[in-house]
């Protein structure tokens, strides 16, 4: 077990495994997302209240879930890097940030597009929308901090601290709709209990969620490889990895 973790923690091993896994995740993501979009747009029945407008859920909810999931991943990787001084963990955290920021932006933008016809406004300052916007700024802050510090090790440590502190925002976003009167409705999907959605609609949403997860895996592995190459001090394995193919 420990040797396995140690092996995975070594950049050459990670690079090799990431290279091998990326296409699998990539193709799975493509299949799931194409099927999910098709099903969500054309197979799922219309909603009794929102008619076809509800179909925005198929891009909004997966983006929003991913924005939180990626942040937790980033903070975990940063914490591992900080505690055990593993450079690879910092590389993974750094790879997460831009992807997470893009999905947070997507969640906000599609939510806004959805809110205009349904709620009657593009934006309100309720607890859910405000805390999700704070998440976007956390990602931006993390990336800005990394870019501002030249020394690799110091940038890793400072940004890791920011990522860990920002984790507090995650439960606030998740439970904001239960804790306060918000305009945003409570969660349709929750771990416990039956989802408040018809099974014919739900299946495509779950497919999109799985597709987005695979998509994140493929992109983060690619970005992490780039980060690992940037940090490679021992040139021998790089030569092997690049010319062995």
């Amino acid at each position: 077990m420990w040797t396995w973790i140690h092996k995975l923690g070594s950049p050459p091993h990670f690079y090799r495994i990431a290279t091998r896994l990326t296409p699998w995740f990539g193709w799975a993501a493509l299949l799931l997302i194409v099927a999910g979009i098709y099903g969500g747009l054309y197979v799922a029945p219309t909603d009794y209240q929102q008619l076809d407008g509800f179909r925005i859920i198929y891009v909004h909810v997966p983006s929003a879930s991913l924005s939180l999931f990626i942040y937790v991943n980033m903070a975990l990787a940063a914490a591992v890097g900080l505690v055990w001084r593993i450079k690879l963990a910092h590389a993974i955290a750094a790879a997460c940030a831009p992807i997470g920021a893009s999905f947070t932006f997507l969640a906000l933008a599609t939510g806004s597009i959805w809110a205009k016809p349904m709620w009657g406004t593009w934006w309100v300052w309720d607890a859910r929308l405000t805390s999700e916007l704070v998440l976007l700024f956390l990602y931006f802050g993390y990336m800005a901090l990394r870019a501002a510090i030249d020394d690799e090790n110091r940038a890793d440590r400072a940004s890791a601290l920011l990522a860990i502190i920002g984790v507090i925002n995650v439960p606030i976003i998740k439970y904001s709709v239960d804790w306060w009167n918000t305009l945003h409705q409570p969660a349709t999907l929750s771990k416990l209990g039956k989802p408040s959605m018809d099974p014919d609609m739900l299946i495509w949403l779950l497919m999109m969620l799985a597709g987005f997860m695979c998509f994140f895996a493929a992109v983060v592995l690619t970005r992490a490889r780039a980060e690992v190459l940037l940090r490679a001090r021992d040139q021998r394995w790089v030569r092997q990895a690049l010319e062995g193919r």
Binding site: I37, L51, H60, A109
Partner: peptide
């Protein structure tokens, strides 16, 4: 074509 919500549905899916 998605009824009266065409613009909203199409723009959010394209943006994604």
């Amino acid at each position: 074509e998605f009824g009266k919500h065409t613009t909203y549905v199409v723009s959010s899916f394209s943006l994604t």
